[in-house]
């Protein structure tokens, strides 16, 4: 098993160039799905290897319930630096489990509370219009999902722009974007190196919903105006929380993309572009990570089976 057990812990680094480049050259739907799939596979492999290290680490602790043979030299030689790595892995796996559990709990608790809050409304339709002077619009996942939009947000948009906003939120619900975002969040808990993917996936789902809204309204400029006006109105309502950044934030990038041409539908970027290379690196990293973790799991299984007294 050797070094293979450590590889999947660092291979998420290979996905980072893809996270940066996917949004520029892929259709947002492909980008969101591809990045989520990569994040989930890399997180799964990383957690599996952490689990293997935990088995080796636990077997060395005094008073552990595992078979005595599992702490033999043959098993320990299979893992380089087994003493430190084993103990560190126990702590890390506990942190991963705790992080994932608290993420899931927080997600479902917030959703349940939001649905409970909306329950007394007289309308049970998809759109929940809330009289509020703070402009906001959110898609609340659930069965059925709801769209929460404040009266002041609608007031600043024309009827056609309101349709674009609602189409955007409906696209979030219909595409079940919250599942991709939750998966990205859990992957970030499993391996902190995957956290930058969450930002990229979140941006891709927004762009995806923008494209759906543009298709629905049949007018890209109208959709761009709806996004831009909503952002400017929200900005006026809320004091700026951070200082100026040189790079353009997500909203101007979305508006600029909507003002540009329809993104191509092709699934895989051309090979000899920077995105093509980044996609290749990410795919290779994911494949190596999967093979390494399976190799390590199989090797440990064989070693442990040999060490288990029958």
């Amino acid at each position: 098993m050797g070094v293979f057990v450590y590889l999947p812990l660092v291979l998420p680094l290979t996905a980072l160039p893809m996270a940066r480049l996917a949004e520029q050259h892929l259709h947002p739907r492909s980008a969101a799905r591809l990045l989520t799939a990569i994040a989930v596979i890399l997180a799964g492999c990383s957690t599996l290897c952490l689990g293997l290290l935990v088995v080796v680490g636990t077997a060395q602790l005094p008073g552990n319930p595992l078979p005595d043979g599992w702490s033999d030299d043959e098993v320990r030689e299979a893992v380089p630096h087994d003493r430190i790595a084993g103990k560190a892995a126990i702590v890390a796996l506990a942190a991963v489990a705790l992080g994932c559990a608290s993420t899931l709990w927080g997600h479902y608790r917030f959703r349940a509370r939001a649905h409970r809050t909306l329950a007394p409304l007289s309308t049970t339709g998809e759109v929940a219009l809330l009289p509020d002077e703070v402009p906001y619009a959110y898609a609340l996942p659930g069965s059925p999902g709801r769209i929460m939009v404040s009266s002041s947000m609608l007031a600043c948009l024309t009827a056609a722009e309101q349709q674009a906003l609602l189409a955007h939120e409906r696209a979030h619900l219909a595409g079940r974007h919250h599942r991709l975002l939750l998966a990205a969040q859990l992957a970030g808990c499993a391996n902190p190196l995957l956290r930058p993917l969450r930002t990229a996936i979140s941006y891709s789902t927004e762009r995806w919903a923008d494209e759906e809204a543009a298709l629905h309204t049949g007018d890209r400029r109208l959709t761009a105006r709806a996004v831009g006006k909503a952002a400017l109105v929200s900005h006026r309502a809320a004091a700026p929380a951070f200082a100026a950044f040189a790079a353009a934030g997500p909203v101007p990038r979305r508006v600029a993309a909507l003002l540009g041409p329809v993104p191509p539908e092709r699934g895989w970027p051309p090979a000899l572009t920077s995105t093509g290379i980044a996609a290749f690196v990410a795919a290779a990293g994911t494949a190596v990570s999967t093979l390494s973790s399976l190799n390590a799991a199989f090797a440990l299984f064989v070693v442990l089976e040999a060490a288990t007294p029958l």
Partner: peptide, 22 residues
């Protein structure tokens, strides 16, 4: 963690950029 907002926060630079785009 749960909701995707229609629009996220703008920096002052973003605001100028957005106005010129629109």
């Amino acid at each position: 963690a749960v909701l995707s907002s229609f629009v996220s926060a703008l920096s002052p630079h973003d605001e100028d950029l957005l106005r010129s785009l629109l």
